[in-house]
Design a protein around this nucleic acid. Sequence first.
DNA 1: ACGCCTTTGAAGAGC
DNA 2: GCTCTTCAAAGGCGT
Length: 403
Amino acid sequence: MPQLGSGGGDDLGATDEMLAFKDEGEQEEKIPENAFTERDLADLKSSLVNESEGSGSPAAAAAAAAAADPEAIRRVQDPHRVYQEKLPDHMDDGMKHQDPGMYKGSAYSGYPFLMLSDPYLPNGSMSPLDVSKQRRAVAAAALLPAAQPGPDPPPPFSLQSNKVPVVQPSHGVHPLTPLIPYSNDHFSHGSHSPHLPADISQKQAVHRPSQTSDIPGFYPLPPAGVSQITPSMGWFTHPLMLGSGMHTTGIPHPAIVPHSGKQEMEHYDRNMKPQPEPKREKEAKKPTIKKPLNAFMLYMKEMRAKVIAECTLKESAAINQILGRRWHALSREEQAKYYELARKERQLHMQLYPGWSARDNYGKKKRRTREKQQDSNSAKKSTPSSGRDSGKEPLCSSTQVDH
DNA sequence: ACGCCTTTGAAGAGC
DNA sequence: GCTCTTCAAAGGCGT
């Protein structure tokens, strides 16, 4: 159990983030009772470490959540409840505090986004790279509606998009869970790609092999928590997956992808057929176990489609900028939700691949040139506001973030 | 075909 | 302990 004992160790990021939020002065609108203090978060997270914790009542949690956040009522009436019911017991402890945020629907249906006027680019001469950046920023900004102060109606997105993979439905809704990368894309392939527009998903669905629809839940977390997951348990072990995303234990895991990466994975995803690949070639390709997604990645995965729809953007770089701003605009509870999911991700990942190290994947991506690295570093130093905390990227939403 | 862009967070390496 | 680097997702874009 490599990191299970680390307690808050791997949560530091979350804690740090929370601290950052304090500084951003976004607490005005914080709910007094349900406010997620850092200690709460720490408690919550440490509670996750105890995988074998007692049970809580999801319904009660939802009720409490609804009391604290009326809007949560709408959320908890949702399929998410199903997930809550299936949550590992240890989750309940933390969930009691944050159910409204956890596994609920759109996390920010009502929070104010503030569109900041200017792209992050400073004045001065621009390198081609800068021009490219500006072009992206402008492209994103150009598609944004004029900022309208005041509360905005929540975007008309279906909250169902947050269905949880643990109870992975076969229809094409995007679940939000720590298990997304392991369950959705790679297990319920064909049913839906979480970030793809519906039409694309449907296209994929055409190729969905019949047997996948029989898979109940690709992440059948036992009530007692992931620690009890065993290779033989509920995992979908399809012979066709052998050799592609199959863990050495026999557990199919989407985090495992062929060396060649995306393309090949898509191949498997969409067709789920053994490719007429030469054996030798197969053997030569060692599967790559991907890193577990962090909180922001999970958030992106969930929200990408929404941003794409809202902003009619497709370029990931621009979308990610928006998502970055939205991420910062999230309340602590809402962020905590994703930190929580990410934590579960890591724990599960750890259990599935005890010996795996992030270092294993080093060098599998082409490194950026040293020059660019230095370039960006110096740029960040010289213009700190252009970095992660620039606060100038548009949120695309008609609301704004005040920084 | 392949890498870059862009975001945040986690983790490893090096000092 | 701190800083730096790399990777995780995503899809348009440039070479």
